[in-house]
Design a protein around this nucleic acid. Sequence first.
DNA 1: TAAGCGTGGTT
DNA 2: TAACCAAGCTT
Length: 361
Amino acid sequence: MSAADLAREPSRARDVARRLARWFARHARDLPFRRTQDPYAIWVSEIMLQQTRVETVLGYFERFLARFPTVEALAAASEDDVLAAWSGLGYYRRARLLHRGAKAVVERFGGVLPADPERLREISGIGPYTAGAVASIAYDLPVPAVDGNVARVVARLDAISDPAEQQAGHPGIARRAEAVLAAGRPRVLTQALMELGALVCTPKAPSCDLCPVASACRAGARDLQAAIPAPRKKVAQPEARFVALVLSWRNAVVLTRRPATGLLAGLWCPPLVPTRAVRRPRSPRTAMERLGFDGTIEPLPGPWVRHVFTHRIWHVAPFRGTLRTRPGGEDVTLWRPGSPLPGGLPRIARKVLEAAGISAN
DNA sequence: TAAGCGTGGTT
DNA sequence: TAACCAAGCTT
């Protein structure tokens, strides 16, 4: 590895910073979370953007802020209300930790998000990336925010070939990113590094001919941009099968709360019962009995509803039924389509309800 | 430390 | 279609 890198070549870091800032001023997307300097709003956007594409977040950010305009409003909300606003966005633990973090900001920091990355890291859901993002974007401090984009851009700029040194958590990457931020306006340069990674320095087929820092890129100079970063190892996705019961009681549908830990923790779903049947079951009588429901049940047409998670795949066979007696219990609710959600409703619940002709919007 | 945690766009 | 993977964090 070369002794010289962005952290050791101040003139090169300045050149990169200047080119990035000029490119960003011209090509940055107009995004709602770039139109605010409110640290709370920027915090919300950064949590939503964790492992999530900008286009997906656009459908949630402004609605969430309208619903919870201040950190005090969020802190005062119920967890079910927060999860309802998060429904469909995924990684629901983020919403729970953001909610917990809002309470801590109100109680411990007087409702003001701190600028010090050490203090930010004490807040639930804020890790090294988000602390850097809030410190640099909201407070214009030269604290690096290394996400997947920044790690890839920096690894390519310095042609880092060791896979371990390409990781976002590696100190060498943070040091290099910090050198770029310190050479200009951190608020601009943090976003510029990420924007470059999202629009130009993409994982596959980067647009090096459009890149403002191609002249400084050592991967480009050696035609290594396709090899950096190294591909990750893939993990198996176990498959599981369930029967789903879309049960009506008068004008409402039965939803049950999932366990407090694990996949889709605490969210609301039509009752799901594991099944070993490989072919679609004709009658989930045992499922009805096991759950203590009393009513009729019939299969819904169509194939298994397939849902792919990060690390597993579900196949769900939906059934529809009508109850003879009103269901009860703490983790059972009756939801009338069109009325506000009782809490978080994951995508698989929507798919199952739609298979029964019920729209959950 | 590595696994667990959602969803959707792109190729 | 299947693979890849995105503004990561927690345990």
